[in-house]
Write a protein that binds this DNA or RNA. Structure first.
Length: 481
RNA sequence: UCCUGAGUAGCUCAGCCGGUUAGAGCAUCUGACUGUUAAUCAGAGGGUCGCUGGUUCGAGCCCAGCCUCAGGAGCCA
């Protein structure tokens, strides 16, 4: 008999029919009730065994984690808690699971423990839901861009450029590290290496993305990104996935409009297509919140928070205004900030971003026009303001609980200004000739941004540690699996 | 990398002021029960107290160093 997925079976109204399901045992209760999950749904199917007429040795093998195949009659459940169940006629163990060794039990495990057994944590409700939502969000990203005529560009993972300016890079080499070829002066002889030059894992596809945008018009990348920073936080990974659109003829406002539309689109998609998963994650989250003191609990539950984000415009705030707000804010006046704001030009710390998003505006915030001194070389230089202060056309989108989820800018398209800035910031201009060619030949205003995919998944699932929204997290001192 | 905290049974944790044989719940095993919902009830087994060294008559507990994990900070997406 052809196998039917549990998700479909749970929705059926055809009682009395025969069906075959396959899945993994979650629990076996009362020598009678098997909770089976095949991954198609976060909900389990209850299979009822007639233990009086079933081989005892077979029943003894129904342990948590075992893979089984069941054929039987689909019936309306006699018990509460489920609508549909299956009366087992044939029961086969496809794969045993030794209960003495299998680490998952039908109870709550800590996320820390599950992280140590990341190869098995897929089998829990929480991670089932998280990775279904992750999939939906990834799919929605492609759907969004495809509907708008963007081309998906695969930028290289191995890069020869060491001037992407976004942090420490992982080196790529085929050298035997115990016997590195050297030049006479003792320096490394890269000519002997695989690519004949130093190479790294990419920290951003932006520069290559710009090249494509300056011909195809609107493009995006969506791929793995690597940062060799020794970051130990709940929102940093050494290997993460980033979405980087790059658009010709977009100014900063067009850029913000696009980013806001993208975020709202993918969040709506998840709400519509991951109802069960989000319900589960929401109840999980509110259970967790019950442990917290009243003051730290959030006013909105998970789905309310997501809906709020879709239904309200993001607050667009100039850096200069933000500094003003922060300077006059209570925590600044009362010296509660660890870093007090007193002058224009200061970089905003997490505590300041959190204050703006969570206390002052209480919604997603887009901060724009940062001081040039604290931003990257490729951002478009604005006209100095009345006080002669230099800013660039940057925009960072800040989300509650996550911080910066998007970082972008209008790009500097004027060759002389860009070159000057590269000299000022010690960026090797000669090596970047290929990049500067876009400004030499048919340069045009253009913009783009980077969206941290895992941070998006964090926000939508309500999880709090970024290591729990990617299957196998890579962080300092951890590359297990 | 810095700050703070943690590491005791498979998991979650308790362990007093340094004192005799290190405990509980869940899981596992055995038995009972049989429409359960993390089933229930009874019993049993299960420990390199993160590692190394030190102090002490005596260390899970005190001291030093190291490792790992978590939270916060920095870097950022």
């Amino acid at each position: 008999m052809k196998r039917i997925k549990i998700k479909d079976l749970l929705n059926t109204t055809e009682f009395g029919r025969q069906a075959t399901v396959m899945g993994w045992v979650r629990t076996f209760r009362n020598n009678q009730f098997i909770a089976v999950n095949d991954g198609s749904s976060i909900n389990n199917l209850q299979a009822v065994v007639d233990f009086n007429n079933t081989d005892d040795a077979l029943l003894k093998r129904l342990h948590t984690g075992a893979a089984i195949a069941i054929t039987g009659e689909v019936v309306e459940s006699l018990g509460k808690g489920q609508r549909v169940e299956i009366k087992v006629k044939e029961l086969e163990i496809l794969g045993d699971s030794d209960p003495e060794k299998y680490p998952l039990q039908p109870k709550k495990h800590s996320l820390e423990f599950l992280r140590e057994i990341a190869h098995l944590r897929f089998r829990t409700n929480t991670f089932n839901a998280v990775f279904k939502v992750r999939h939906a969000l990834a799919f929605a990203v492609h759907k969004f861009f495809n509907e708008r005529g963007f081309a998906y560009i695969h930028t290289p993972v191995i890069t020869g450029s060491d001037a992407e300016g976004a942090g420490e890079m992982f080196k790529v080499t085929t050298f035997d590290l115990d016997q590195i070829p050297r030049n006479e002066d003792g320096s490394v002889n890269y000519k002997e290496d695989f690519f004949g030059r130093p190479t790294n894992l990419t920290v951003s596809g932006q520069l290559e993305g710009e090249l494509a945008a300056m011909a195809l018009g609107e493009i995006y990348t969506f791929g793995p990104t690597f940062r060799a920073e020794n970051s130990n936080t709940t929102r940093h990974l050494a290997e993460f996935w980033m979405i980087e659109p790059e658009m010709a003829f977009y100014d900063l406002n067009d850029n913000m409009d696009l980013a806001e539309a993208l975020l709202k689109y993918v969040i709506s998609y998840a709400l519509e297509n991951c109802k069960d998963e989000l319900d589960f994650l929401q109840s999980r989250l509110s259970e967790e919140e019950k442990q917290k003191p009243q003051a730290e609990r959030s006013a909105l539950n998970l789905k309310e928070k997501l809906k709020f984000c879709i239904e309200n415009d993001f607050e667009r705030v100039n850096y200069t205004e933000a500094i003003d707000i922060l300077r006059k804010s209570k925590p600044n006046q009362k010296r509660q900030f660890k870093y007090l704001i007193d002058e224009w030009g200061a970089d905003l710390q997490s505590e300041h971003e959190r204050y703006l998003v969570e206390k002052h505006f209480k919604k997603p915030v887009i901060l724009i026009n940062y001081p040039a001194a604290i931003k990257s070389f490729y951002m478009r230089q604005n006209e100095p303001d009345a006080q002669g202060r230099e800013t660039v056309g940057a925009m960072d989108i800040l989300f509650p609980g996550i911080g910066e989820i998007v970082g972008g800018s209008q790009r500097e398209e004027r060759l002389e200004k860009l070159e000057q800035r590269m000299y000022d910031m010690n960026i090797p201009v000669e090596e970047m000739n290929w990049f500067l060619d876009t400004r030499r030949f048919g340069s045009a205003p253009h913009s783009g941004f980077g969206l941290g995919f895992e941070r998006l998944v964090l926000f939508v699932t309500g999880m709090t540690n970024i290591r729990d929204v990617i299957p196998f997290p890579r962080t300092p001192k951890n590359a297990e699996f």
